[in-house]
């Protein structure tokens, strides 16, 4: 069970690295826009759309990694004082029962949305650049598929505690 979880986490780990690196072009392109506006007196046509796409991709591709790093917040008023099995059960509820079906459904919805963009050759319609929108939609879908993968990994860790294979969630890490 844990071997599968480890394998899945390798995927999220690498996606996290890609997501984090996106900040670099985001900084460069936005700075260039300011530079172009005041020094060349001519704004670029692409900086606005590249800006939101950079932020979007950064966040979408990083969601799964952030879950893996336990950086999403919760209130541990009750949670912190429970035993390992109860903790694992609460997490299992959050990951497998609530989030996983939602994420899978949403990934499917985003896939259809991506397909539509591809079929209509839809463009963003937001600026003079007006790029085709399917790559960004694909990125949205990939973000949620990655989140689903990490949710499966987390659920497996919970299960391993619940069936007694690991003593606690910390050990299952």
């Amino acid at each position: 069970m844990l071997i599968v979880a480890r394998f899945l986490e390798k995927i999220t780990q690498s996606s996290g690295i890609i997501a984090a690196l996106i900040i670099i072009p985001l900084i460069l392109s936005t700075c260039y826009e300011v530079f172009a506006r005041y020094v060349f007196g001519a704004p670029t046509i692409w900086a606005y759309e590249l800006g939101y796409m950079g932020m979007g991709a950064h966040f979408l591709l990083g969601m799964a990694y952030t879950l893996k790093e336990k950086a999403h917040i919760r209130i541990d008023l009750i949670y912190a004082f429970r035993g390992p099995k109860t903790k694992a059960a609460i997490d299992f509820l959050g990951y497998a029962v609530i989030m996983l079906p939602f994420t899978i459904w949403l990934s499917w919805g985003l896939f259809m949305y991506y397909e539509e963009a591809l079929m209509f050759e839809e463009t963003s319609g937001q600026s003079a650049w007006n790029p085709v929108i399917w790559p960004f939609r694909l990125c949205m879908m990939i973000g949620f598929v990655l989140l689903a993968i990490q949710l499966v990994a987390e659920s497996l860790k919970c299960l391993s505690v619940l069936v007694g294979q690991s003593a606690s969630l910390e050990e299952a890490e």
Binding site: I23, G51, M55, G56, F59, W105, L110, R137, M140
Partner: peptide, 26 residues
Amino acid sequence: LIWQFVGRVESLASNYILAAVPLFVF
């Protein structure tokens, strides 16, 4: 409902103002 959610994902991920968030954090 799924289309409501798909729309929310797209509009949040396409928000130029929010690009300030990762930049200030960085």
